[in-house]
Write a protein that binds this DNA or RNA. Structure first.
Lengths: 186, 186
DNA sequence: ACGTTACCGAACATGTTGTTCGTCATGATT
DNA sequence: AATCATGACGAACAACATGTTCGGTAACGT
């Protein structure tokens, strides 16, 4: 990738992040992003057609780090019956999110969180569904899966909103306790 | 309240609902609302200063029905130790939401859900916190409260997104089973 | 040194925004 | 029924955002 593209793309991302910390996604204009990034008007449109596409690209960037290949690969999946593997993975995810904190706080603090969460839940669904081979609970599988994904996503949002006051390890442990994972997974 | 105001206000709400079913909140212009509601430009601004204020008013309208006084009053709070009271309340909430389905589906299907959910969780937090006198779980109270509120909100969103394919009673029952409420509340 | 490619910046038509104001119609009140 | 207050209308306005075009310039990769 051309260095100029990298530089411009980086400037746009940085400007977008900065603005997201100040105001809501919906109220940010492309004009403001252009001014903040200090780039030409046509340059922006050469990279992204819409504001949504920009947000999407930024989310994809973040998740490609958070959900690294080994995190969702079958190989590290623990089939032994205990859920230590799951807790480990959740801890990893929280650690990765903590590292890219700068972007994420801005995204989540506003309504742009909606799109971020949508993508996030997509990845989480893929991950959790591998652990759901059966349940001891009298509820349909799709209900249970949604509950696990949704509650973990909410936990992450809450964790970030509260300045990540617990460590990733502690947060993952709390989640495992409250989520009845022992009742639900095999 | 003047009948003219009622009529106009209703027309705006109806137009807004209609548009929310077609496109995302962020992409709806005030101009479109004006056209759809078939009202004058200055009339809209006489009622609402911003689009956000309109959404806020609509959410408040809905919640004032969903969380009717007896739902969150102390008097119907079940202190006996079992959680039958909670399940009943959740069922009531789902029933109320089902009745105002027309508006809610539109709101939730787009990013406007962010604001809706924010208000919704405010009410839910108030309600759930009355049930949280102590826990059998090794996690802080604020973590548990957020988990209960967040997971129920997510459940509701999923329920609405999936055309409310289960009855309110069944959905509330599933939630109670998956949420470990028996472990968490007194 | 070369050709390629990205950025610039100005200009443009189009649409949105929020406000103002005189006019008219509909409401509440007596 | 007559009156008065109030809300809706709609046109007009400046200010701004949008998305696109295009010729010129600079930086890139090889």
């Amino acid at each position: 990738m051309d260095r100029r593209q990298q530089k411009t793309r980086g400037a746009i991302f940085r400007a977008f992040s900065t603005l997201l910390e100040i105001k809501r996604y919906g109220n940010i204009t492309i004009q403001e992003i252009i001014d903040e990034a200090n780039i030409g008007r046509s340059t922006f449109y050469a990279h992204f057609d819409t504001k949504d596409e920009l947000l999407r690209a930024m989310c994809t960037d973040i998740f490609s780090h958070v959900f690294s290949d080994d995190l969702i690969s079958e190989k590290t999946h623990d089939f032994s019956g205990n859920n230590n593997g799951l807790e480990t993975k959740l801890t990893h995810i929280l650690h990765h999110l903590k590292d890219s904190e700068k972007n994420i706080v801005g995204i989540l603090s506003c309504e742009s969180g909606e799109l971020f969460m949508k993508y996030f839940k997509g990845y989480l669904t893929e991950m959790f569904s591998k652990y759901l081979n059966g349940t001891n609970v009298n509820a349909p599988a799709d209900f249970v899966l949604n509950h696990l994904v949704g509650s973990f996503a909410e936990t992450v949002k809450w964790w970030i909103d509260n300045s990540m006051k617990y460590t990733p390890e502690t947060t993952a442990k709390y989640y495992m306790e409250v989520s009845c994972v022992d009742r639900i997974t095999d």
